[in-house]
């Protein structure tokens, strides 16, 4: 087991419905997380809508997959970066997003926040640092 663990960044830029990108990205993340890789997610542009609370897809006849984001913590996905400017431009705040957490087994399953707001400049650095960027 001498393989180097790579840092995978999944970059989400599109609204949750209307295209298949958001759901496909989430599926790939869940599959990828089953292997020992260092996974981070980034949400920019309309991608920030993927994490909003209270989604209702009844009118468009699609499955509402937003509850699945809450499972990411179970899959050891603990780093979810959301770009502040993208939220601002859409009149959204952190409160409009789901409260995503992961449980720290070493601290008696204490819940810790997964979402971290970052600036556009910080997001650029995060992308730069990633070994592999998957863009959806």
């Amino acid at each position: 087991m001498s393989e180097t663990i790579k840092n995978f960044l999944y970059l989400n830029r599109k609204a949750p419905y209307g295209t298949i990108y958001a759901w496909e990205s989430l599926e790939v993340v869940l599959i990828g997380a089953a292997f020992d890789q260092d996974v981070s997610l980034a949400f920019v542009d309309d991608g920030v809508y993927q994490l909003t609370k209270g989604q209702d897809t009844a009118g468009i006849g699609m499955k509402n997959f937003s509850p699945t984001y809450a499972a990411l913590g179970d899959y050891e996905v603990k780093k979810i970066f959301v770009e502040q400017e993208s939220l601002d431009e859409r009149g959204l705040t952190l409160d409009d997003l789901q409260h995503l957490v992961w449980e720290d087994e070493d601290e008696d399953y204490a819940e810790k926040d997964s979402i971290k707001l970052v600036s556009r400049a910080e997001m650029a650095a995060i992308m730069d640092d990633a070994d592999v960027v998957f863009s959806f």
Binding site: L30, A33, N64, F65, P67, T68, A70, A71, D74, Y109
Partner: peptide, 18 residues
């Protein structure tokens, strides 16, 4: 019901332990 997916084995194993 809660997450709209079936958990991976690793996730299930951990959850069952808890």
């Amino acid at each position: 019901e809660e997450y709209q997916i079936a958990p991976a084995v690793r996730v299930l194993t951990k959850a069952v332990g808890k």
